[in-house]
Nucleic acid binder design. Structure first.
Lengths: 225, 225
DNA sequence: GATAAAATGTGATTTGCATCATTTGTAAAT
DNA sequence: ATTTACAAATGATGCAAATCACATTTTATC
């Protein structure tokens, strides 16, 4: 489903878009297309040309490398811009984006996006804030992935879904065991083993992909570097 | 050595500062202090308040976590801004910065830096470009660190110093074996072992910290994911 | 509902690298 | 030159997690 949209009345604006004036918002609507993606749909693919700024309005998305030993670089929830670095600085996508939940994505012409940065100081400022947060998050991820063992990394990932994505102690894991492994760099088999062990220790309750966090503190202790 | 400086005549401007007009440059000079750091000097420390934007004008710096199992998050060469994310979004430094070579750093008042972003669109744009590049680099580092074994990671690090820092096949490694290990997440002992092995295989020549790259292609093959 | 295909669980085995334990080298201090 | 102290090399051992192999469950397809 593709549709030209009215950004002025959109209630899920990015903090940057909130800074745009009515004229700029209508301009945005004219240079912007919203596309709906279903769980599992590929949004953009590593190696292809990056022609638009992608704005994840609503939904959950993974950024990941391709190939058999694929790695999930980031999992993020809307509202958030995806791949600004790629579109801005490299013409080619260095990673793919795939929907983990049904998602609404707005594809924005790069030119209009750049012009907003030049015309609207608040807009530029908010984009910088978003990029800054992104970098800090990546640093934290780097430290966690190398300092923690499999238990700590898995605990960290579960808390990430609980706090940052679903904001609930119970959630449906949007990843297979293998994908979860690709997210925290452990194998499918080890994910299984550790999950059942955490279940046995009554820290979580698992039934397939349904996860319930029973003991947040215990998981926090495990994931503490 | 501390000195108030004249940014107008400075020939090592960041690409962002190049966009400033004469008036703004003189304003920058009034709100900016240059300090010289010697190899090994701490520039700012994890846990302290981040009060200024730090501009690495000239030199080589490592960003790293503290504690016994310290991790080197990034090694970078001037001209480049350090820790924009921290100053912008968090008041407290999440990592330390230490000079690996004698370095000149300009400490810029955060307020004036933010006002340039709001007043000068080209300035903001260039800051965004720098942040974008930084994020892409971090992604690449993440992939390399998890997909490669110790040989690949060490080869990658050596090529990094050759290409990105010293732009020469021969260079003095600015890190101890232990620090090099902290950079690529391997132990001191393994660094030694792998280095001597690469020397035996005639890919590099080592004498203490003096390194000569003999076979770039072989190292590239090792570091290819 | 039957069959195929994919995802998951689990035990046995291997291995890459860390850890531990010494030795050797090197550079500053006396 | 000799002592002191730290950095680096090297060999032996241990272990966490990967790999392998196969059983079992779940999901998809006809």
């Amino acid at each position: 489903m593709t549709s030209n949209i009215n950004c002025s009345t959109c209630i899920i604006k990015s903090s940057a878009a909130k800074a745009l004036n009515p004229e700029q918002l209508s301009e945005l609507g004219e240079n912007c297309v919203q596309i709906d993606f279903k769980k599992g749909d590929v949004i953009f693919k590593e190696g292809t040309f990056s022609v638009n700024i992608t704005y994840l309005r609503e939904g959950v998305v993974k950024l990941h490398t391709e190939g058999k030993a694929s790695q999930i670089l980031k999992i993020t929830k809307g509202p958030k811009y995806l791949g600004i670095p790629t579109t801005f600085e490299e013409k080619i996508n260095h990673y793919s984006a795939t929907a983990l939940e049904d998602s609404h994505i707005c594809f924005i012409h790069t030119d209009i996006f750049k012009s907003f940065i030049e015309e609207n100081k608040k807009f530029a400022y908010e984009i910088i804030v978003e990029l800054c947060n992104s970098e800090l998050e990546l640093f934290r991820k780097c430290v966690n992935r190398t300092k923690n063992n499999v238990y700590g990394r898995l605990a960290h990932a579960l808390l990430f879904f609980q706090e940052k994505i679903y904001e609930s102690n119970s959630f449906h894991l949007p990843l297979s065991r293998e994908e979860l492994g690709n997210f925290i760099n452990i194998t499918r088999e080890s994910v299984s083993r550790v999950l059942t062990e955490l279940d046995t220790d009554k820290m979580i309750k698992i039934k397939g992909k349904e996860i319930e966090i029973l003991d947040v503190d215990a998981l926090k202790r495990l994931s503490a570097v």
